[in-house]
Design a protein around this nucleic acid. Structure first.
Lengths: 193, 193
DNA sequence: GTCTATACCGAGATAGAC
DNA sequence: GTCTATCTCGGTATAGAC
């Protein structure tokens, strides 16, 4: 049964090599020849396992987007309330923290990810928008919606920040949740000075 | 004097076409042939005006980065104080708002921008880091630094948000400044739950 | 000083032999 | 499953027309 095992291994090895090279060099700068070389096969052989370079990218960042999708879907069944808001934000932070290793790749190569997922991403984007609107609270002003957007951005700091510091995941979670809440607390405040 | 004027026009037209196509399609998916076509010249003719596709990208997002650089440089001469902090944040928001049209291109094609600016960007990144550290305030904890990162992210909402709404630039400025300040106000707070 | 014709190389992708 | 050979298209480079 060399064939079956070897096949599974090869596909897994390609995946590993892709995760590795994409995260260090970026998507564009990584060629299929390079990946094939690292695995020890030919460029053309890759195509037996993955039908395109984009499919390979999908395999790499797919789980992240799936989890994100799940969280956003969850909030759509919730009425807005401050407790639910806290729960939703918490779930969101959890996903971002859990995947923050693949995060940089995702952030740096958004263009490629957008291209790779195409229309599949439209629904995720739509849900993100609805999530932001939900976060803006009942009867939001334009300023409130901007605040909601800012609150979400806040959470993204988990990826971009240098997290080599001595901060536990629990601490990151607490700090960012607190930050997002602080921004949202400004809702309803009159704009101006 | 057709030559001189035609030359300047051509270069400007290439620039315009690039801004246009990059922002709608993204950097990678826009080919030089496509740009040349839109201008009405040959692919090779582009080469006379811009020595590479990367140089064209530099021309497009360059002023944004220059302005950002200038703001970050400015803050380095300042002692930290809450008034100075407010001023620095204000200047930062102003730059982001002023360039928010080219912002999406910058955000989506970071990978390409990083490649195009290469080492030139290292200093900007270093300054950004110092800015964040400065924002964290005197004797910051790790949590405070995370808060500073989150505050900066907040301001980025000016780009990613759908700004077709009826929000004036002054309003955006006020809201985001307020949001960033709210996040920073949590500095020193013990991390709990 | 401005542009075209043309060639080059490396990329992703496909067809078909083994 | 994996290979070789081949195709197309992208960015790049140069020689030379006007």
């Amino acid at each position: 049964m060399q064939h079956a095992t070897s096949s599974r291994d090869t596909k897994a090895e390609i995946h590993r090599a892709a995760v590795d090279l994409f995260s260090t060099q970026g998507y564009d700068k990584t060629s299929l020849r390079e990946i094939a070389e690292q695995v020890g096969i030919t460029k053309a052989s890759l195509y037996y396992h993955y039908s395109s370079k984009q499919q390979l990218l999908r395999a790499v960042v797919g789980t992240f987007l799936d989890d994100l999708f799940e969280v956003l879907r969850l909030t759509e069944t919730m009425e807005w309330s401050s407790e639910n808001e806290r729960e939703a934000l918490g779930a969101y932070v959890d996903v971002v923290i859990a995947h923050r290793a693949t995060g940089p790749t995702l952030l740096r190569d958004i263009a490629a990810v957008l291209a790779a997922f195409g229309d599949d991403l439209d629904e995720l984007i739509a849900r993100s928008r609805r999530f932001q609107l939900w976060l803006a609270g009942p009867d939001p002003t334009a300023a409130d919606r901007l605040r909601a957007a800012a609150a979400v951005e806040t959470i993204g700091a988990a990826m971009s920040a240098e997290l080599d510091l001595s901060v536990s995941e629990a601490e990151i979670r607490a700090v960012l949740l607190d930050a997002a809440t602080a921004v949202l607390a400004r809702r309803g405040t009159p704009v101006g000075e």
